[in-house]
Design a protein around this nucleic acid. Structure first.
Length: 345
DNA sequence: AATTTCACG
DNA sequence: ACGTACGTGAAATTA
């Protein structure tokens, strides 16, 4: 495809290459070329459809176990460097939800029989709450304590406008910035995602750190800690060792520094949901409940719930998830039920 | 067998 | 000038 796009159609003079020298044809690259030839959009559409068909529609039905008519995943507890679980054979942590066609696939996940419903319990903004807790930034803690929409609160501060005057675009930008913070933001990365000039992205980041000085200090201190000790750790003390944190190569070192920022946040979130899972399981056993905890998707737990247990389980899950770790900000859990996984969201 | 792409949080 | 946001797994493609 690279040969057709870049040698025959010559869509650009200097095609972007992958690290092994092949023409890059990923979604980002193609989206930027879409206006140059109508085939590009067709390729993107084809890609999205074949992805869903090959990975989910054709594959999952083959994995139904004749024994019980269900699909069973495996969870690995010792793969992800941050302490997250990972799921394989099949991966049930990446079932589609973001597109309309993808959501059709999610509807196929249903309770065991008519006496049951699916219950999904999600942490709301857990990683931002954890960074608020770890950094003790006053403004970020204040936003959560007041029960505000944190992206609107961020937009209001960064753009210097009253809460009521935050536009949709301002909130969207602030949301991307908040995510960027968790990942170890760069002006380049932010400018790519917001499709704005790098200079503007740099200004937004500067403004962000002026309004949330505690977060900047936390990030600096965390990198400093990593440099001194060679690792960072989560709230429960799980360590991630960062051998490249003192590298003389700036690119390699910057990667390690982003890991130093991200690992305590992502890892503490993993700590928290694991504690909740253990306590929920134990309590469900103690009460001889019929319902079963069936999936974990990083900040979400899914239960096959006996209809008579819905109200009790909701209260139990809400309590155990909220109180798994004591944070200095409120923890919010959204819980819904439905006759399929999509409806339970 | 390694790489690329893309699905999720 | 460099290379560029964190963590995974599966399918298709390329070498």
């Amino acid at each position: 495809m690279g040969v057709v796009l870049f040698e025959h159609l010559k869509l650009v003079d200097k095609p972007k290459k992958t690290k092994t020298g092949q023409y890059s044809t990923g979604e980002d690259v193609l989206t930027k070329l879409a206006y140059r030839h109508p085939i590009v959009e067709k390729i993107l559409e084809y890609r999205s459809l074949t992805k869903l068909k090959s990975t989910y529609v054709d594959s999952l039905p083959k994995l139904v176990k004749p024994r019980d008519g269900r699909i069973h995943t495996s969870y690995n507890q010792a793969v992800a460097a941050t302490g997250r679980l990972s799921s394989n054979n099949p991966n049930l942590q990446n079932i589609p939800i973001r597109t309309e066609r993808g959501r059709e696939i999610r509807k196929a996940f249903i309770p065991r029989n008519k006496e049951y419903v699916l219950m999904a319990a999600d942490y709301s903004q857990i990683e931002l709450r954890i960074i608020a807790h770890l950094s003790k930034d006053k403004a970020m803690m204040d936003a959560f304590r007041k029960g505000m929409d944190v992206h609107i609160a961020t937009a209001s501060r960064v753009y210097g406008v009253p809460l009521e005057q935050v536009s949709k675009d301002m909130r969207r930008h602030a949301k991307v910035v908040n995510f960027g913070i968790i990942y170890g933001i760069s002006a380049f990365g932010l400018s790519e995602r917001l499709k704005i000039p790098r200079r503007e992205a740099a200004e937004i980041i500067q403004s962000y750190f002026e309004k949330y000085p505690g977060i900047r200090e936390y990030m600096e201190k965390t990198i400093e800690f990593a440099r001194e000790h060679g690792y960072v750790e989560t709230i429960l003390g799980r360590r991630r060792y960062l051998s490249d944190i003192r590298s003389a190569n700036g690119v390699v070192r910057a990667y390690a520094e982003r890991n130093a920022i991200n690992a305590p946040i992502q890892g503490s979130s993993a700590d928290m949901i694991k504690i909740a899972m253990i306590r929920i399981f134990n309590e469900m056993q103690r009460r001889n409940m019929k319902s079963k905890m069936i999936l974990q998707v990083h900040d979400e737990l899914v239960f096959d719930t006996h209809k008579e247990e819905v109200e009790d389980l909701k209260i139990l899950v809400d309590d155990k998830m909220k109180n798994a770790l004591k944070l200095d900000v409120p923890v919010v859990v959204d819980i819904n039920t439905g006759n399929n996984w999509l409806k339970a969201h």
